[in-house]
Nucleic acid binder design. Structure first.
Lengths: 360, 360
DNA sequence: GATGAAAATGTAATCGATTACATCCGGCGA
DNA sequence: TCGCCGGATGTAATCGATTACATTTTCATC
């Protein structure tokens, strides 16, 4: 007489079915599956046979309800279509799914109410932990993610003033190294193609740029800081801005806060007739796959994308299983400068680093 | 006295707490939240106030256990780092999360036992539906995804001999159109850079290529079919193969089964001194973002990536909620040829389509 | 063979929500 | 006034697994 209002999934084998078939109690079945060593050999084989025959698999909702765990973690990603994050996600996925966790991906590109929905979901206990790749604490109108009393770990983008573990690279130091490479080559007029000012990565990379110039005794010229927002499009715009300058006033090198902008810029100035790297050396940041595909290939800072994800995931697992683990608050992973075809000494220079050329 | 073996999440507000505070029964609270119209105004406001004061959110595991639903769908993706799928995922995510579903992403790049784990997970009732972007039926050693008795929908890659809905583009027809464009321009020696032979998309695109040649009365030259596997690397290799040919024997145009290979090939032959499109016209397939970033920009077939995802998701939702809906088995979405800078009439030709030049 | 500890298994409470069914109450028609 | 109807709410069964505690079995030892 059961009238099915909604689509109902039929007949599921449950633990009591297995128990009946094996001639044991449900407790024994559960134990056989959870801790095989505590049941006697003979019972175990009987139970396992029954499990196989019935095709039993435990109902996860029931288990979760009982043990108060969900075995899923939520990963907040700024933009899933961004290849950089896609690779970080791979690392996360590898580690987490090996440990038996499922992951819900919260793609924050899109309407902001989505973020709120995800926060509520976590607060409702739908996840055992959260991985933030998004550079900010997620909020919903009434709650904060912290209210969820769930372990948090951040990766890639540093979130200031927080106490949970964060897995990042040394953006300041690596940016300094990138610009240092240009200086080594003999460049003294080095532009910076920036990200959105509010972004922490942008702030750190800009700081690295400044430090490198300062160390080399090169005066920072604010006219050489081009606005951008990490997208290809703004790279193109920056390229046009460069072309609009008097040739003599043009920088001989440029450090871009990420690869996408660098590639956009290169494409633009290259089509306009500038030679890369002869007329302009370019260094990017991130090490996305296309940095190695474009023409010329891009010298860039390669971030350990998979490791960033995997490390953060491992840290979160530790946190989730052992409660408050030893909080390694700031975990820095090494990023390295990958030399490719987009950098070279400036034309006028002999190739040595005559740092005081600038003082004219 | 509660000794916490595992990390236990503390104090969760439950429905009975709300009921007590509001001075009503749990049933009333549940009803207030599920069907506000059946409780009287005064009670409703009292309950809602209690909900707000306590910060109550229902325990999803408990609800799922009771109503036998999970509100999550599993999405099987061949490779999450592939920008094409990343965008399809966006469409899926938009639609699904708007409808209140969470999504578990099964990234099939990686060890095959992962696929099995996901199959088991679905069979265990952990998902209400599955979206397959992977071109094959998922399996685990003992089970098939069909055993899960859960709605399935496939998208992007067609899976033959199945009865569930599939959302794809007309690969044969669009490939024919792409090659037709080259023929229109006057090309008669047109190479094909193929995908892996076992892949259905490859088979369909190859078929489209053949049809276009046949219609134009051009004899298919199997020497012009270059092996590839959809990766950038094989595009590079194909480029080298092309360069190794006698200049006179080289095709004047090439159709690549996807953009990534096309870009790899262009980069390779371009660095070697061939002019694109003057010496070689190239058409790609997919319309990934980089097709518009590379130098020259790539003429390609643009797939409606977001719509593919969104449509498939919508179809799955229909299936999940209304049981066996009207099964629109094959849903074809339009893809369009995007003309950019990588195609042009062949050098010798006047630019008109003198199709019978070949018979010379 | 009795004894007790340890090992194996069983019983039943529990997790937190949904919902069929029971109950209560007010109002309306006869 | 009685009885009935229907709307609002309460009671308690239920979903399916885990596990504390109870009970039974095993077995080494004297």
């Amino acid at each position: 007489m059961a009238k099915r209002t909604r689509a109902t999934r039929p007949k599921a084998v449950k633990i009591s079915d297995v128990a009946r078939l094996a001639g044991v109690s449900v407790a024994t079945v559960s134990r056989t599956l959870a801790r095989p060593d505590v049941v006697i050999e003979e019972t175990r084989t009987r139970v396992l046979a029954a499990v196989r025959d019935t095709g039993y698999t435990p109902n996860i909702s029931a288990r979760n309800l009982r043990v108060r765990k969900t075995m899923v973690v939520l990963v907040a990603v700024p933009d899933i279509a961004n290849p950089f994050f896609a690779e970080v996600l791979q690392g996360i996925d590898d580690t987490l799914s090996a440990a038996g966790y499922g992951l819900i991906i919260a793609n924050l590109a899109g309407p902001p109410e989505k973020e709120a929905r995800y926060v509520d979901l976590v607060c409702a206990g739908q996840a055992d932990g959260v991985l933030l790749l998004c550079g900010h604490m997620m909020r919903s109108p009434n709650r904060d993610l912290r209210d969820a009393r769930v372990p948090l770990v951040a990766a890639c983008e540093y979130i200031p003033h927080e106490t949970f573990p964060q897995v990042t690279i040394d953006n300041v130091g690596t940016a300094r190294e990138a610009v240092g490479h240009l200086i080594q080559l003999g460049h003294t007029s080095i532009a910076y193609l920036s990200g959105p000012k509010s972004n922490i990565l942008e702030q750190q990379r800009l700081e690295g740029y400044r430090q490198a110039l300062r160390e080399a005794g090169i005066a920072a010229d604010t006219g050489l800081i081009l606005p951008g927002d990490f997208t290809f499009r703004t790279g193109v715009e920056a390229g046009r801005a460069l072309l609009a300058l008097e040739p003599a006033a043009r920088p001989t090198a440029l450090f871009a806060a990420n690869d996408e902008m660098a590639i956009g810029l290169i494409k633009t100035v290259h089509t306009a007739g500038l030679q890369i790297p002869d007329d302009l050396s370019v260094v990017g940041f991130d090490g996305i796959a296309y940095a190695d595909y474009c023409e010329p290939t891009l010298t860039t800072i390669v971030q350990p994308r998979r490791s960033l994800g995997a490390t953060a995931a491992a840290e979160l697992i530790a946190l989730m299983t052992t409660g408050t683990a030893e909080l390694r608050k700031d975990i820095k992973l090494p990023a390295k400068l990958m030399l490719r075809d987009s950098t070279r000494p400036p034309r006028k220079s002999a190739g040595h680093s005559f740092r005081d050329l600038r003082s004219g």
